[in-house]
Amino acid sequence: MITELNIKQVEKISKALGDPYRLKIMKIVSNNNSCTQCCDVSAEFNLAQSTMSHHIKQLIDADLLIADKEGRNLKFVINKEVCEAYAAYISSLVL
């Protein structure tokens, strides 16, 4: 269980969330509890699948999304532990 993030992790997450498409991707995955493939998410945007793959990779690299392989498909879920640790870090800035 992650209780605290180091400054490098916070920086990486902040950069990943600094793009409006990535914020929307996180919201879609969160609302659906998971998404399969980039196609599920890219239907919401007017972007090429390669661009969507890039955005999703950035979120995975920042540990915000977890990619689970299901057969030939990938299923994306929110990494709740990291998101909660990030929210706690941001909250600690205003105390």
Rank of each mutant, 00 (worst) to 15 (best):
K8Q: 08
M26Y: 03
L5S: 08
S14I: 01
L5K: 09
Y86M: 12
D19I: 07
A85G: 09
S53A: 12
A62S: 15
R72I: 05
C38F: 12
C39I: 13
S50W: 07
N79Q: 10
L74C: 00
A88L: 15
D68G: 00
Y21R: 14
N79W: 07
D61A: 14
N32I: 01
Y21G: 02
S92K: 13
V41S: 01
P20E: 15
L23E: 14
L74H: 02
S14G: 05
K8I: 03
K8A: 06
D61G: 03
Q58K: 13
R22E: 10
I2P: 08
I66M: 08
K69C: 07
N31F: 00
K12I: 15
H55W: 04
T3W: 02
N32L: 15
V77A: 03
A43L: 08
V77R: 15
I13F: 09
K12Y: 01
V77D: 00
E70L: 03
L23H: 02
N33P: 00
N31K: 03
L17S: 14
N31G: 11
I90F: 11
E11M: 12
N33A: 06
L65Q: 06
E70M: 04
L65S: 09
M1I: 04
S92P: 00
L65N: 05
L65A: 01
C38S: 11
K69T: 15
D63A: 14
L5I: 05
H54A: 14
R72A: 07
A48E: 11
D63R: 13
A16R: 05
S14N: 05
I78H: 02
G18F: 03
D40A: 06
T3A: 10
K12R: 13
K80D: 12
I2N: 05
F45M: 10
S50M: 01
T36F: 07
S30W: 13
I7G: 00
D40I: 01
V10T: 09
Y89L: 02
E44T: 11
Y86A: 05
A85V: 06
A16G: 05
L95M: 08
I7S: 07
K8C: 00
Y21L: 07
N73M: 03
A16Q: 04
I28K: 12
